[in-house]
Simulated scan of single mutants.
Amino acid sequence: MSNKKYTYPTVLTIAGFDGSGGAGIQADIKTISALGCYATAVLTALPIQNTTGVKSIFSIPEHIVGDQIDTILEDIFPDSLKIGMVHSSKLVEIIVEKLKRYPQTPIVFDPVMVATSGHQLIEGNTIQTIIQQLFPISDVITPNLDEAAILAGMKIESIEEMRIAGKKIMRLGCKSLLLKGGHLKSEELTSLYFSPNGTIESFEFPKFETNNTHGSGCTLSSAIASYLAQRKSLPEAIKFGQEYIHQAIYHGQDVLIGKGNGPVNHFFNPQKLIKHEMDS
């Protein structure tokens, strides 16, 4: 051990499975790796899915998820965490119990409720548990418009309605919010970042005519977590994370993978693992 001088920025993803490789824990590992970080993973659920949709979902027993978290944390403690699919109240409680002991470790929570295909992925009574327990320990949450509509209890069909919904979600107790506007019918993609100090920052990107966006939300949240692990500030991580997913969609827009919503190109510009000097 004495000759080891470096470590890699590490990111732990706690998320569901995607056998088709474009979303969930597979997208997270690809993203974290492509951005030069070391990925560890805890599996929360086994959805049976491909690019055309979700066929069914098999739960991982909650205590097994808890054991996975304990086993990783005691060996490879992460520089940041990304949380994705948590589909039951008990699972939320287990994850929060394990992670609330480490308030200094940044957490990005992607509230996966609806798949790109439109399938609902979460039990209804779980939403309140997420709001009450998971929001307070998360540094930023990254819902898409379908998920934000559920959280805010309103339709969102314009930038102005995004602002109203975002303020409502912030009042639910989250520290900060990146509201993704990819589902708006517009020529430009607009996302809004609601910061802890009350400011709202707008990000605009051109839209591409493609359905290759499977796993884009998983990819964005993992990218933000990766930049946080590289010691970027949260506003920087959010900016760089959005630039990464924008480029990943651009470079994968004309590729055929699967018969439904294809994946983004996670490896359009892969980085070598970053070496950080270990604290002496």
Rank of each mutant, 00 (worst) to 15 (best):
Q104V: 09
A165G: 13
V255C: 07
V114I: 12
P136T: 04
Y250I: 02
S191C: 02
I169W: 12
G16M: 00
A229S: 08
V112P: 10
Q49E: 11
P235A: 06
T51Q: 01
A15Y: 05
E93Q: 04
Y102H: 13
I164D: 13
L46Y: 07
I32V: 10
D254K: 15
R231C: 09
P9I: 04
K232D: 09
S117G: 06
F240H: 12
K98M: 04
N269A: 15
I72D: 05
K275F: 13
A229Y: 00
S216Y: 07
T13Q: 01
G21S: 14
G215C: 12
L43I: 14
D75I: 11
A41L: 08
D279I: 11
P206H: 07
K168Q: 14
A23L: 00
S88I: 00
N3D: 14
Q230W: 07
S88L: 00
N144A: 08
G118S: 11
K207F: 01
E188R: 13
F77I: 05
T199Q: 15
V108C: 10
I69W: 12
D70K: 13
A248F: 13
P136I: 03
L172G: 03
M162S: 06
A149E: 10
S20L: 12
N261T: 09
V264T: 09
L12D: 09
T10I: 03
Q68T: 11
E160K: 15
N265K: 11
S20R: 15
I14T: 12
G217Y: 04
R231L: 07
L234F: 04
I107Y: 04
Q26L: 15
L273E: 01
E187M: 07
L81S: 02
V264R: 13
R163Q: 14
S20E: 15
I25M: 15
G24H: 05
G36D: 02
L46R: 09
G66M: 08
I32Y: 03
E97C: 07
E97F: 08
T210S: 06
L35M: 02
K4P: 04
L228W: 08
T210E: 05
L189S: 11
I164L: 14
I83H: 04
I224Y: 03
M162G: 03
E188F: 09
T105Y: 01
F77D: 04
D18N: 10
P235V: 01
E74D: 13
L91T: 12
S88N: 00
L220N: 10
Y38G: 02
T51N: 07
K259N: 15
E188D: 14
S59Y: 12
I29A: 00
M170W: 02
G36N: 15
K90I: 01
T13E: 00
I64Q: 09
T44R: 05
I249F: 02
K4T: 12
A34K: 05
K207L: 01
Q128G: 07
S221R: 01
Y6F: 14
M85L: 01
E187G: 15
G198C: 13
E157L: 09
T105C: 08
I107R: 10
H251F: 15
V86C: 03
S2L: 12
Y244G: 00
G198F: 14
K232E: 08
M278K: 14
A149K: 08
L12C: 09
P270M: 05
S202E: 06
I14E: 07
T116P: 06
I83D: 05
T13R: 00
G166N: 10
